Amino acid sequence: MATGGRRGAAAAPLLVAVAALLLGAAGHLYPGEVCPGMDIRNNLTRLHELENCSVIEGHLQILLMFKTRPEDFRDLSFPKLIMITDYLLLFRVYGLESLKDLFPNLTVIRGSRLFFNYALVIFEMVHLKELGLYNLMNITRGSVRIEKNNELCYLATIDWSRILDSVEDNYIVLNKDDNEECGDICPGTAKGKTNCPATVINGQFVERCWTHSHCQKVCPTICKSHGCTAEGLCCHSECLGNCSQPDDPTKCVACRNFYLDGRCVETCPPPYYHFQDWRCVNFSFCQDLHHKCKNSRRQGCHQYVIHNNKCIPECPSGYTMNSSNLLCTPCLGPCPKVCHLLEGEKTIDSVTSAQELRGCTVINGSLIINIRGGNNLAAELEANLGLIEEISGYLKIRRSYALVSLSFFRKLRLIRGETLEIGNYSFYALDNQNLRQLWDWSKHNLTITQGKLFFHYNPKLCLSEIHKMEEVSGTKGRQERNDIALKTNGDQASCENELLKFSYIRTSFDKI
Rank of each mutant, 00 (worst) to 15 (best):
C35R: 00
L155H: 13
S54E: 07
V121R: 03
E49K: 11
P269V: 10
T68G: 07
A119I: 00
L332S: 01
S161G: 09
G232L: 12
C153A: 04
M321Q: 13
Q216G: 04
H59Y: 07
W278I: 03
K217A: 14
R69W: 10
C234L: 01
Q245P: 01
Q61S: 14
P220C: 04
R69F: 14
N170T: 07
S98Q: 02
V200N: 14
R41F: 15
R263E: 14
T267I: 02
Q216I: 03
L332Y: 05
L240T: 15
P36K: 07
P197V: 05
N52P: 14
M83Q: 06
F103V: 03
S112P: 00
R69Q: 10
D178C: 11
T157P: 07
P269N: 01
M83A: 03
G142M: 01
Y272R: 02
C235G: 01
G203L: 08
L60I: 05
N42G: 04
C239F: 00
K67A: 07
L128H: 01
L96R: 01
S213P: 12
L89K: 01
C335F: 06
V167L: 04
D178M: 14
V144S: 05
P313Y: 03
S323V: 14
C264K: 00
K176Y: 15
E151G: 10
C239N: 01
A190K: 06
F258L: 09
R41T: 15
Y171L: 08
S324T: 07
C286H: 03
T68P: 07
F285E: 02
L29H: 09
A156Y: 15
L44V: 12
S77F: 15
S143W: 11
E314H: 02
L50W: 03
N150C: 05
S317D: 10
C255D: 00
I122E: 01
C53I: 01
R141Y: 06
G183P: 10
S161M: 14
R74V: 14
C53L: 00
Q204L: 10
L90I: 10
C286D: 01
K217S: 10
R279S: 06
L289V: 10
D288Q: 15
C209T: 04
T250G: 13
N105H: 03
L174K: 14
C335I: 05
N282Q: 12
E314I: 02
H127Y: 04
C280E: 00
P271A: 12
L136G: 00
N117C: 04
S237W: 10
F285T: 06
C53V: 02
G241R: 10
D75Y: 13
Y259D: 14
E151Y: 13
L64Y: 09
S225P: 11
C219T: 02
L96S: 03
P197M: 09
R74W: 04
E33P: 13
L81F: 01
Q276A: 09
V305S: 11
D165G: 12
Y272S: 11
L326T: 05
T199N: 12
T107H: 10
P336L: 07
I82M: 13
I62G: 01
T194L: 14
T250F: 10
L50H: 01
N117F: 10
H28E: 07
F66P: 09
V34Y: 07
R279W: 05
T157V: 05
C335M: 03
R92S: 06
T199Y: 04
A119W: 01
T267E: 05
C215N: 14
E314Q: 03
R110V: 04
S161D: 04
L240R: 05
N150A: 05
F205G: 14
G32F: 09
Q245L: 08
C264P: 01
T45Q: 05
D178R: 07
L155K: 10
T211V: 09
N309I: 03
E130P: 01
L88V: 07
R256I: 09
G37Y: 06
P197K: 10
L60S: 00
C234Y: 14
I222T: 10
D169N: 13
Y94K: 07
H226M: 10
C228N: 05
P31A: 03
M65Q: 07
S213R: 05
C252Q: 00
G58T: 01
I122N: 00
G241D: 02
H127K: 05
P79H: 06
T45W: 14
E314C: 04
L327E: 13
Q299T: 08
C235R: 00
A190L: 10
C243S: 01
F285I: 04
E151I: 01
K294T: 14
C228I: 03
T157S: 09
K310P: 02
R298S: 12
Q276Y: 07
G132V: 01
E57H: 14
R145A: 11
N52V: 14
R162G: 05
S244T: 03
P316M: 07
N138Y: 13
L60P: 00
S225D: 07
H307F: 08
T221R: 10
E71W: 02
R162E: 13
A198E: 15
F73K: 04
H226Q: 05
C53S: 00
F116H: 01
V253H: 05
P246I: 15
P249H: 10
K193L: 04
L131T: 10
R256D: 07
T68Q: 09
T211G: 02
H28K: 09
E238V: 03
L89P: 00
I84K: 00
Y30C: 05
N309A: 09
Y94I: 13
N135H: 07
K191S: 10
I172S: 13
P197R: 13
N135Q: 11
V108Y: 02
L63I: 03
N42S: 10
V173T: 02
M83E: 12
P31Q: 02
G203C: 06
I172P: 14
L50I: 06
G227W: 10
H307T: 03
E33F: 01
S317L: 10
P246Q: 15
P70R: 12
M125L: 02
D261A: 08
L164K: 12
V121P: 00
H48N: 15
H48F: 08
Y272P: 00
S161R: 09
G142H: 01
H302F: 15
I62E: 00
A156R: 11
S296H: 10
C286I: 13
I109M: 02
L114N: 04
I62T: 00
L128V: 03
H226L: 09
L102F: 13
R263N: 08
S244P: 05
P31H: 03
I40P: 01
S161F: 12
P249N: 13
E151K: 14
V108D: 01
C255Q: 01
F91V: 05
F73R: 04
C219Y: 07
Y94R: 10
L240S: 06
Q245F: 04
C234N: 02
P246Y: 06
P249S: 06
H212Q: 14
P270N: 12
Y30D: 09
